[in-house]
Protein backbone atom coordinates (compact mmCIF):
# COMPACT_ATOMS: atom_id res chain seq x y z
CA UNK A 1 0.00 0.00 0.00
CA UNK A 2 0.98 3.58 -0.44
CA UNK A 3 3.61 4.91 1.85
CA UNK A 4 3.22 8.42 0.55
CA UNK A 5 0.17 9.96 -1.00
CA UNK A 6 -0.05 9.75 -4.78
CA UNK A 7 2.15 6.70 -5.23
CA UNK A 8 0.64 3.66 -6.91
CA UNK A 9 -0.94 1.44 -4.31
CA UNK A 10 0.27 -2.02 -3.59
CA UNK A 11 -1.99 -4.77 -2.35
CA UNK A 12 -1.35 -6.40 1.00
CA UNK A 13 0.25 -9.82 0.90
CA UNK A 14 0.50 -10.51 4.62
CA UNK A 15 -2.43 -11.79 6.59
CA UNK A 16 -2.16 -9.11 9.25
CA UNK A 17 -2.31 -6.37 6.64
CA UNK A 18 -5.45 -7.87 5.17
CA UNK A 19 -7.05 -8.30 8.58
CA UNK A 20 -6.16 -4.80 9.71
CA UNK A 21 -7.95 -3.49 6.65
CA UNK A 22 -11.36 -4.41 8.07
CA UNK A 23 -12.79 -4.51 11.59
CA UNK A 24 -13.02 -7.75 13.52
CA UNK A 25 -16.75 -8.01 12.96
CA UNK A 26 -17.53 -11.26 14.70
CA UNK A 27 -16.94 -9.99 18.23
CA UNK A 28 -20.40 -8.73 19.06
CA UNK A 29 -20.73 -6.40 22.08
CA UNK A 30 -23.13 -7.80 24.64
CA UNK A 31 -22.88 -5.37 27.54
CA UNK A 32 -26.13 -4.42 29.17
CA UNK A 33 -28.14 -7.51 28.30
CA UNK A 34 -28.13 -8.69 31.90
CA UNK A 35 -29.51 -5.34 33.06
CA UNK A 36 -32.68 -6.21 31.18
CA UNK A 37 -33.23 -9.20 33.45
CA UNK A 38 -32.67 -7.34 36.73
CA UNK A 39 -35.82 -6.51 38.73
CA UNK A 40 -33.76 -4.31 41.14
CA UNK A 41 -35.64 -5.49 44.21
CA UNK A 42 -35.66 -3.50 47.42
CA UNK A 43 -36.67 -5.40 50.56
CA UNK A 44 -39.31 -4.18 53.00
CA UNK A 45 -41.19 -5.51 56.01
CA UNK A 46 -44.78 -6.66 55.86
CA UNK A 47 -46.69 -4.68 58.46
CA UNK A 48 -50.00 -5.22 60.13
CA UNK A 49 -52.97 -2.97 59.40
CA UNK A 50 -53.23 -0.64 62.45
CA UNK A 51 -56.46 1.12 61.47
CA UNK A 52 -59.92 -0.20 62.18
CA UNK A 53 -62.55 -0.62 59.54
CA UNK A 54 -64.86 2.23 58.61
CA UNK A 55 -68.58 2.32 58.66
CA UNK A 56 -69.61 3.78 55.31
CA UNK A 57 -72.20 6.01 56.93
CA UNK A 58 -69.35 7.88 58.54
CA UNK A 59 -68.10 8.89 55.12
CA UNK A 60 -71.20 10.84 54.28
CA UNK A 61 -69.54 14.08 55.34
CA UNK A 62 -69.78 16.57 52.52
CA UNK A 63 -66.21 17.77 52.35
CA UNK A 64 -63.05 17.71 54.26
CA UNK A 65 -60.54 20.49 54.49
CA UNK A 66 -56.88 19.91 55.22
CA UNK A 67 -55.71 23.15 53.71
CA UNK A 68 -52.78 24.13 55.85
CA UNK A 69 -51.17 27.46 55.34
CA UNK A 70 -47.46 27.18 54.75
CA UNK A 71 -47.37 23.46 54.04
CA UNK A 72 -44.43 22.63 51.84
CA UNK A 73 -44.89 22.82 48.09
CA UNK A 74 -43.88 19.53 46.51
CA UNK A 75 -42.09 18.88 43.23
CA UNK A 76 -43.54 15.96 41.33
CA UNK A 77 -41.73 13.73 38.89
CA UNK A 78 -42.42 14.21 35.22
CA UNK A 79 -42.40 10.88 33.38
CA UNK A 80 -39.42 10.62 31.05
CA UNK A 81 -40.53 8.07 28.52
CA UNK A 82 -44.26 8.40 28.53
CA UNK A 83 -45.73 10.69 25.90
CA UNK A 84 -48.04 13.27 27.44
CA UNK A 85 -49.86 15.49 24.97
CA UNK A 86 -50.30 19.16 25.68
CA UNK A 87 -53.91 19.17 24.49
CA UNK A 88 -56.81 20.03 26.75
CA UNK A 89 -59.12 17.11 26.00
CA UNK A 90 -59.07 13.69 27.65
CA UNK A 91 -61.29 11.74 30.00
CA UNK A 92 -61.81 13.04 33.53
CA UNK A 93 -59.64 10.86 35.72
CA UNK A 94 -61.54 11.82 38.87
CA UNK A 95 -64.43 9.67 37.69
CA UNK A 96 -65.06 6.96 40.22
CA UNK A 97 -63.88 8.87 43.29
CA UNK A 98 -66.19 8.85 46.29
CA UNK A 99 -68.26 12.02 46.82
CA UNK A 100 -66.14 12.85 49.85
CA UNK A 101 -62.89 12.53 47.96
CA UNK A 102 -64.25 14.46 45.01
CA UNK A 103 -65.55 17.33 47.06
CA UNK A 104 -62.46 17.52 49.19
CA UNK A 105 -60.33 18.20 46.13
CA UNK A 106 -62.42 21.26 45.40
CA UNK A 107 -62.54 22.32 49.04
CA UNK A 108 -58.80 22.23 49.34
CA UNK A 109 -57.91 24.21 46.25
CA UNK A 110 -54.75 22.24 45.69
CA UNK A 111 -54.73 21.57 41.96
CA UNK A 112 -51.26 20.54 40.86
CA UNK A 113 -50.17 22.40 37.75
CA UNK A 114 -47.61 21.64 35.05
CA UNK A 115 -44.90 23.74 36.66
CA UNK A 116 -44.93 21.56 39.78
CA UNK A 117 -44.12 18.51 37.64
CA UNK A 118 -40.44 18.49 36.69
CA UNK A 119 -37.97 16.40 34.71
CA UNK A 120 -35.92 13.62 36.26
CA UNK A 121 -32.72 14.49 38.05
CA UNK A 122 -30.04 11.89 38.55
CA UNK A 123 -27.20 11.61 40.99
CA UNK A 124 -23.53 11.07 40.27
CA UNK A 125 -23.72 7.27 40.17
CA UNK A 126 -25.13 5.87 36.98
CA UNK A 127 -28.56 4.50 37.65
CA UNK A 128 -29.02 0.79 37.27
CA UNK A 129 -32.73 0.85 36.95
Amino acid sequence: MAETVGEGKEIARCLVEAVGDVPVNYIVPKDGLSDLADPCFTPSVELEEPFGSVDDSELKATSFCVNEEGSKKLTFRRPKNLTVLAEESGADLYDGLSPLARMSIDANDCQVSGEDIKEYKTGDVSKLR
Binding site: L74, F76, V84, L85, G90, L93, I105, C110, V112
Partner: peptide, 20 residues
Protein backbone atom coordinates in the same frame (compact mmCIF):
# COMPACT_ATOMS: atom_id res chain seq x y z
CA UNK B 1 -54.96 6.16 31.08
CA UNK B 2 -52.93 9.36 31.28
CA UNK B 3 -52.54 10.83 27.79
CA UNK B 4 -52.68 14.59 28.23
CA UNK B 5 -51.15 17.28 30.36
CA UNK B 6 -54.41 18.08 32.24
CA UNK B 7 -54.72 14.38 33.07
CA UNK B 8 -51.17 14.35 34.41
CA UNK B 9 -52.13 17.32 36.59
CA UNK B 10 -55.15 15.39 37.82
CA UNK B 11 -52.98 12.41 38.65
CA UNK B 12 -50.62 14.51 40.74
CA UNK B 13 -53.49 16.36 42.35
CA UNK B 14 -54.72 12.99 43.60
CA UNK B 15 -51.25 12.11 44.85
CA UNK B 16 -50.89 15.52 46.44
CA UNK B 17 -54.24 15.02 48.21
CA UNK B 18 -53.10 11.64 49.47
CA UNK B 19 -49.96 13.24 50.88
CA UNK B 20 -51.84 16.14 52.44
Amino acid sequence: RIRTEPQLNQYYTLISMAIR
